[in-house]
Nucleic acid binder design. Structure first.
Length: 645
RNA sequence: GCUGCUAUAGCUCAGUCGGUAGAGCACGUCAUUGGUAAUGACGAGGUCAUCGGUCCGAAUCCGAUUAGCAGCUCCA
């Protein structure tokens, strides 16, 4: 006898039975139940229960249930590929957030036509209602089976499994795949499938390995859900900064200037200027000293910093890097070695620390040609850079200050809700290759940083092998409208570079000490942040940062002079305002294209003139009726000052 | 850098079998209309991304380059 608890009710059984049968006995199972969680492990409905356990039934709406569903969809894809292109070699095919993918090694390119054919074959497989069975084999037999099926990648995967691993397979019809599972009961539940794209991906994610063909897809229990998913994707595309950022004239690119070198048009420039002035002022309030350092330096500087050894491929170098009879310059990829010179300018006392240095810093990185993307990944960008030179006991307090500033800044622009924190650590296996310094130094820096993060109550994930070459980082990750993640802000502890540059201060006991350094940004890089703001607000930026805050619309020729008078009054207070007099007498037929991107519109006509007012139309609140210009202006200035969203 | 796709007017796109280029919107002029997504007429705009090849002839076929997109790898 054993007990199976379904939370709602508990039953007792004598003989082992499947989750499905147990749930059926409990009268809990429906068609929607596609998997289960038994004692915290996700299993299929055919999983045998033989002892006391707690069972939670899963549907597609549970993340774990969707995962099982998508994984089965990936197997159906692989089966379809093997039917239509038997020579294809299978590799791996997991479920991912956006659905699933499967990587294939095939000589035939999977063009859109091929994907359509595969989709058709997948539908057949679903109709065939193939039962999905799990079986386990000892290592040698597992290997032999994969050899017989002609699957070298699967053989390699088997060889790499730990000695005590259970080697399981799943069979559906004629198709067998090495897989840990779990899976659906049958192929029939996967009612709606869309193969979205085919791209390249390296085997095991290693650039040195063969490039495979990755087919992405999405699958749902019903056609309606698939349709809704595809429509949501379409909506996200409408917010794509790379599309609307160009349409709304924030930026453009020019073939002759080159990849990753966007032109910021007047609107984009104005937004960035607004952000930059705000950040510089905010940092000044918080005790930062402003610096302005060169955009380039001789190779010798980067040799000291270590960039020459660790970052040379990512730098733009002018001159022959190997000819030491001549000068060789490089554009700066980072600000650190330049800003350190500010500290090194004279002998420093402990009384001067913490020294907080801030700079709006333009950097140059020679990214690989396939990496560039709109304003998000570029070769020249400007960052709200800063370095804090500290006594050891100031580390925690200053780190907290940096984190508070970053959170305040991200919260103000509205991005904090979509942020997560990542504690980026080194990988000891790459010591001396990617990372400088000793294991002791790294362990110490990471211990200190871990303590600080825990003391501050920061919820973070750990990213192994995500550190900088000189130290661990706290990366603030931003998730965009497509669900893609990028680092927006980073705060790093550096125990190495101060020593390399000979940075020292005289401590209270008269001894020379090496300071700690925090590298940090507050708003990250302006171009990338602008891109995310455009997406976040679908181009309709909050008033305080909008490139055009007010548009004045005179109705009739006789009001044009007054419209310009109102414009002068607003502009004198720093308001970004335009008059639209292009259709001065058109009246009814005023073009309103893109007007929804401007926070306020002032309509000037006879009614308003008689009352000495303007008719205010707010993007957010609609028609606000007639108010005097002074009232409108004072409310507007308060809204801008408060940086309301 | 890698795999796949793409490039025709400022934008969105037609252009069949290889025979010297087309629409709508936008833009300009004139006329017309007094309140929030589209008045009418006329006009201007393209070395079909660039370079090379095949051909009597290339927007169209082939190759290279450049740029853009998706993904991989890398990264703020």
């Amino acid at each position: 006898m054993f007990k199976v608890s379904f939370f709602e009710k508990t039953l007792e059984f004598e003989a082992p039975l499947s989750v499905f049968d147990a749930a059926k006995a409990a009268e809990l199972v429906t068609r929607a139940h596609i998997a289960a969680e038994v004692g915290g492990t996700v299993v299929g409905m055919t999983h045998l229960l033989a002892g006391d356990c707690e069972v939670k039934l899963l549907t597609f709406t549970d993340a774990a249930g969707k995962h099982v569903f998508d994984h089965t969809a990936a197997h159906i894809l692989a089966q379809a590929v093997k039917r239509l292109y038997p020579a294809t070699k299978l590799t791996i095919g997991p479920a991912v957030e956006s659905g699933f993918y499967y990587d294939f090694d095939s000589d035939i390119p999977f063009t859109p036509d091929v994907l359509a054919a595969l989709e058709g074959e997948m539908k057949k497989i679903v109709k065939e209602n193939l039962l999905i069975e799990r079986f386990e084999l000892p290592r040698e037999e597992a290997r032999a089976l994969m050899e017989e099926k002609g699957e070298p990648y699967k053989m390699q995967l088997i060889d790499e499994l730990p000695a005590d691993a259970v080697i399981s397979f799943y069979r559906q019809g004629e198709f067998v795949d090495l897989c840990a599972g779990p899976h659906l009961f049958s192929t029939a539940a996967v009612k709606a499938i869309k193969l979205t794209q085919c791209t390249g991906a390296y085997w095991k994610g290693d650039q040195k390995n063969k490039m495979l063909q990755r087919v992405y897809g999405a699958a749902f229990p019903s056609k309606e859900e698939l349709k809704a998913h595809l429509e949501a994707l379409e909506e996200a595309r409408k917010r794509d900064h790379n599309k609307i950022g160009r349409e709304l004239e924030y930026f453009t690119t020019v073939e002759e200037i080159g990849q990753g070198l966007p032109i910021l048009l007047p609107k984009g420039s104005r937004v960035i200027q607004t952000l930059q002035r705000w950040i510089e002022d905010e940092e000044q309030k918080r005790g930062y000293l402003l610096t302005k350092t060169p955009l380039m330096a001789k190779r010798e500087l980067f040799k000291i910093s270590g960039h020459w050894d660790h970052y040379r491929d990512g730098m733009f170098i002018m001159g022959d890097p190997d000819d030491y009879s001549k000068e060789c310059f490089a554009l700066r990829p980072m600000t650190c070695p330049f800003q350190y010179q500010v500290f090194l300018n004279k002998k420093r006392s402990y009384r001067e620390l913490p020294m907080r240095l801030g700079e709006t810093s333009t950097l140059f990185r020679n990214e690989d040609s396939g990496e560039m993307h709109g304003l998000i990944r570029v070769r020249q960008f400007t960052i709200s850079e800063g370095h804090l030179v500290l006594r050891p006991e100031q580390l925690e307090e200053e780190f907290r200050g940096c984190l508070e500033l970053a959170k305040y800044v991200l919260d103000t622009v509205g991005m904090l809700e979509n942020c997560t924190f990542r504690f980026s650590q080194w990988d000891p296996a790459r010591a001396g290759i990617k990372y400088e310094g000793t294991a002791e130094q790294w362990e110490e820096a990471q211990r200190v940083m871990g303590n600080i993060l825990d003391n501050l109550g920061v919820q973070y994930t750990i990213g192994i092998d995500e550190a900088a070459f000189y130290g661990p980082k706290l990366d603030i990750q931003y998730k965009n409208v497509f669900g893609k993640e990028d680092t927006i802000v980073t705060i790093q502890i550096d125990m190495l570079l101060a020593e390399k540059f000979g940075m020292e201060y005289v401590d209270s006991d008269g001894q020379m000490k090496t300071p700690y350094i925090i590298h940090r940004t507050s708003l990250g890089c302006y171009e990338r942040t602008l891109a995310y703001l455009i997406e976040l607000y679908a181009g309709a930026l909050p008033t305080w940062m909008a490139p055009e805050q007010v548009r004045i619309l005179p109705i009739g020729d006789e009001h044009i002079d007054y419209a310009y008078d109102v414009k002068r009054r607003l502009a004198a207070k720093g308001v970004r305002v335009e008059v639209d007099d292009r259709n001065e007498t058109i009246g009814k037929k005023i073009r309103t294209t893109q007007l929804e991107k401007v926070p306020y519109m002032l309509v000037i006509g006879d009614n308003e003139m008689n009352a000495g007012t303007v008719a205010v139309r707010s993007r957010k609140e609609g028609d606000k009726g007639a108010v005097t210009v002074d009232e409108f202006l004072s409310d507007l200035l308060v809204e801008i000052e408060e940086k309301r969203r």
